[in-house]
């Protein structure tokens, strides 16, 4: 027997076995239930697009990404499943079908948005496509990528398992996005102004600036 760790920050629990057959375990019921749930996910793959190829690769022998984590058996009836994988683009026309599938699943149920299209609509920013399945059903974990690497999916599954273990049922929230290039430019501009460009400084010109600057005085110390 191994250790059952409660990741919610509450008191950790431990399962101990002494001797060969005799033993006792102390735990909280919620922790035990969460531990049991997270290792016995029954998945319903709602595969609509090219991400499905990557979903197959995930389940292939190289990664074996779901069976290793207790989600081996797919159930092609939502009534028998508790984990809904939405793999691929969901069109506006498909949205009612997805909603109905979700409503047929029994509690507790979890949803993973596999890939950019399921998460946000991706580059299908048009009349036909639902801009993210969270407009229709709550999503627990989003996986970015077009398609995502199997490692990313395994990471997402681990995140979901953590979430299940601590009994967290709140929908996932994507952080407000940040322009990485813009942030790097700000950093570079700052370091550029910190450097001493001798001839330029002697002639009174501002040093080299990168990207846009709103304030012409920004280059001066």
């Amino acid at each position: 027997m191994g250790e059952v760790r409660n990741t919610s920050g509450r008191e950790a629990v431990r399962v101990e076995v002494t001797g060969s057959e005799v033993g006792f375990a102390t735990t909280k019921f919620d922790a035990l239930l969460g531990w049991a749930r997270k290792w016995s996910l029954f998945q319903y793959p709602f595969v609509t697009a090219c991400c499905g190829m990557e979903f197959m690769s995930l389940n292939g022998p190289r990664f074996d990404g779901l069976a290793r984590f207790g989600a081996e058996a797919p159930r092609f009836s939502p009534r028998q499943a508790d984990l809904l994988w939405v793999v691929g683009t969901i069109s506006q026309k498909q949205a009612p079908a997805l909603k109905r599938i979700y409503e047929q699943m029994c509690d507790p149920k979890y949803v993973v948005a596999f890939g950019t299209c399921a998460s946000s609509g991706g580059f299908y920013d048009n009349y036909a496509t639902t801009p993210g399945i969270d407009k229709i059903i709550p999503v627990d974990v989003y996986i970015p990528g077009c398609p995502p690497r199997p490692e990313a999916v395994i990471d997402a599954l681990n995140l979901l398992q953590d979430k299940i273990a601590r009994g967290d049922r709140t929908p996932g929230v994507v952080k407000p996005r940040e322009d990485i290039v813009e942030r790097q430019l700000v950093t570079l501009r700052k370091s550029a102004t910190d450097l001493d460009y001798g001839p330029q400084r002697r002639s009174g010109e501002p040093p080299i600036t990168l990207g846009r600057t709103s304030d012409p005085k920004e280059g001066e110390r």
């Binding site: 506006q92 009612p96 048009n126 407009k135 996005r177």
Partner: peptide, 19 residues
């Protein structure tokens, strides 16, 4: 867009930015 299914309005939807 003309959604066939009305969009949800939860904190996980309203706080999100468009793609």
């Amino acid at each position: 867009t003309q959604p066939l299914m009305p969009y949800r309005s939860g904190p996980d939807v309203l706080g999100k930015q468009r793609p």
